[in-house]
Design a protein around this nucleic acid. Sequence first.
DNA 1: AGGTATTGTGATATATATAACCCATAAAGT
DNA 2: ACTTTATGGGTTATATATATCACAATACCT
Lengths: 114, 114
Amino acid sequence: MPHENRIKKSLPPEVSAVILQLGERIKIARKRRALTMEEMASRMFVTRKTLSRLENGDPGVSLAVFASALWVLGLEKELGTVAVPEQDKVGLYREQQRLPKRVRHVEEANDLDF
Amino acid sequence: MPHENRIKKSLPPEVSAVILQLGERIKIARKRRALTMEEMASRMFVTRKTLSRLENGDPGVSLAVFASALWVLGLEKELGTVAVPEQDKVGLYREQQRLPKRVRHVEEANDLDF
DNA sequence: AGGTATTGTGATATATATAACCCATAAAGT
DNA sequence: ACTTTATGGGTTATATATATCACAATACCT
């Protein structure tokens, strides 16, 4: 069965742009820390070339490589601010939209006696 | 020449943890928007199974898949807050550390007449 | 409860990532 | 200027991601 990698050919510009930006920032952070690509790559358990692909914004590199880079740089915590449910305004709004008009009273959950 | 994927076997716990967290959050955001995996995957130009791997925290999924998911959810801008050079405290500190003790005055760059 | 939609998961084929090794160029230090 | 080191690519082999297809199980809705 033939197949093709649809995503690589259909990347929205915003998406490749943000990946490029992340690569650039990782490169800057690495240089600031005076780490050679060789040194950083080895700390990431990855080859220099893979790190190169990351820094150059190759969309194909894995999350493992990406997150490991941030980890080596001491920046992995920043990923914790992405897609936080409590701050997902669009999501919260949509959820409210789907709330029922009226609610039906439900018997106190007696069947949950565990 | 045989080789092995070193990174997959050497993932620091913090790294796989943050990837797992991102997957969970993406799943929550998807459900809030009342998107089925099928629908969301097709908007990402990806199969349902690939989206499943992302939501389950598989470290091997590509940045393209990850960023596309955020994009479909309208959350891709949040990646812009990751590894921002201006806010990289460690990096800025290290950079200052490497500043020379004294500077030598350099002749105004006359040789740059282009 | 019954029917439908959604999700989980497995098998297989192919595209791609990654490793390993190499050389060439560029940059940096003395 | 010279020497060393870092980076940019290219090539090949293998591991893995992804697509495609199929089916079971679960959740959801009326």
